[in-house]
């Protein structure tokens, strides 16, 4: 598989492979980071840190432990959340906007240049409130299943099935 080979080369510090993987996932990571920090300059700073860290930690990744995407998603979420906990950040951002990712997507004019914009906006527009919260917590914020269950006051099993249904809906919109 091509992705596996790419990741293998990346682990051997192949610069071209790094660049390819960056192009594959940078928008996604930037989206996740921005959703957490809500500031363009800080998001850019965190992005740099994340990919530099990924490069240095490349040989610690193993496909047995999970998807490469999930690996770098974890690095990105943790770096962004760390940033929001820093003293400097807390001082500059007293009140973090409580909007969900959906509000960012709906107001994202840059999105029109990208593929699938229509499908994504449609999906987000008709997404149920509970769906929005589940996706937000599990993918954008990195909550565990039990953390999400607690935060949303929902049984653990419900989180799992609801999430499955929400992602199914998303797949129908953006992949078909």
């Amino acid at each position: 598989m091509e992705l596996d080979q790419l990741v293998e080369k990346f682990k051997q510090k192949d610069e071209k492979a790094f660049e390819k993987l960056y192009n594959m996932y940078s928008d996604s990571m930037h989206g996740v980071i921005y959703n957490i920090v809500r500031d363009h300059d800080i998001a850019q700073e965190v992005m740099q840190d994340v990919f530099i860290k990924a490069w240095h930690k490349a040989d610690s990744y193993s496909s047995k432990k999970g998807r490469f995407f999930t690996w770098i998603l974890n690095i990105a979420r943790n770096a962004a959340i760390d940033k929001t906990r820093s003293k400097a950040f807390k001082n500059s951002k007293q009140n973090l906007n409580s909007d969900f990712f959906v509000d960012i997507i709906e107001g994202n004019e840059n999105l029109d240049d990208k593929t699938d914009a229509i499908g994504i906006k449609k999906f987000v527009g008709k997404l149920a409130e509970k769906c929005k919260a589940v996706i937000e917590l599990l993918y954008f914020k990195g909550y565990t299943q039990s953390e999400a269950s607690e935060a949303l006051d929902m049984p653990i099993g419900t989180i799992k099935t609801r999430n499955r249904n929400c992602i199914q809906e998303l797949r129908n919109m953006v992949l078909n």
Binding site: M24, R67, N110
Partner: peptide
Amino acid sequence: EAAIVKLTASTSQR
């Protein structure tokens, strides 16, 4: 994974 990549990418404004 592909669907999540697309969804998260669409919150990127830059």
